[in-house]
Design a protein around this nucleic acid. Structure first.
Lengths: 110, 110
DNA sequence: TAGATATTTAGCACATTGGCTAAATATCTA
DNA sequence: TAGATATTTAGCCAATGTGCTAAATATCTA
């Protein structure tokens, strides 16, 4: 998949207000699908599909915990993708990233 | 219109790769509709509609110059909107804005 | 004014999106 | 194993998005 299509997946995911709100809700840490669904007036299957779109765009990751499936925000992915676009269009605007240091973390290649 | 809907208009506009490319093309300064259309393999009416979407989202402005209609990128609008969302979701990522000083420019209120 | 050029508007076709309900799948618990 | 709980998958439907061509509008030029 080309980088442009990749970016399109992210921006399409961000085009829906429910999905943007899910990302904001995940800011506080991982949440189960049901916990997320409980915050919205739409059905659980619809939320499940929104989560699938976010996962497909790489904006969240999931892990199973017994009964439940927990979703986590992929901050790096979001900031990298938006930052790349913003610097391509508005070089005057710079996304400054306060990345946390993690032991053993490698710097990304190009 | 609420702020959320306002933001939705911007992200919906950014969801299409042709529209994102138009914004990048406008980075160098204003362009006529026909000049923009000449860069893409799709018809002039289709480009015209894309320009209408971008204008509706506030991401470009237009002015008539004789025969032609010239479009200009609204950098502030783009950076402000994306920056607001990014800081709502990833507070660790900050959009730094090198705004140009303009005589008589007022700082925005809240 | 007539015609050429630039652009938008109107209307059609087709694919995608986003909601729903019902059913399937996975896991836990008695 | 049977049933309860959590979640996803499948399939339907109405609305939206995006391409096209034809026609309308605006401006320039002869």
């Amino acid at each position: 998949m080309t980088e442009a299509q990749d970016e399109t997946g992210v921006f399409k995911a961000l085009a829906d207000p429910t999905r943007r709100q899910i990302l904001e809700d995940l800011r506080g840490g991982e949440l189960a699908a049901g916990e997320i669904a409980g915050k919205f007036p739409i059905s659980a299957p619809s939320i499940s599909r929104h989560l699938g779109v976010l996962k497909g765009a790489g904006l969240v990751t999931e892990r199973r915990d017994g009964n439940r499936i927990l979703y986590t925000l992929a901050e790096d992915r979001l900031a990298t993708c938006i930052g790349r676009f913003l610097s391509a269009v508005c070089p005057e605007q710079i996304v400054l990233r306060h990345t946390k240091w993690r032991p053993g973390a490698q710097r990304e290649g190009s």
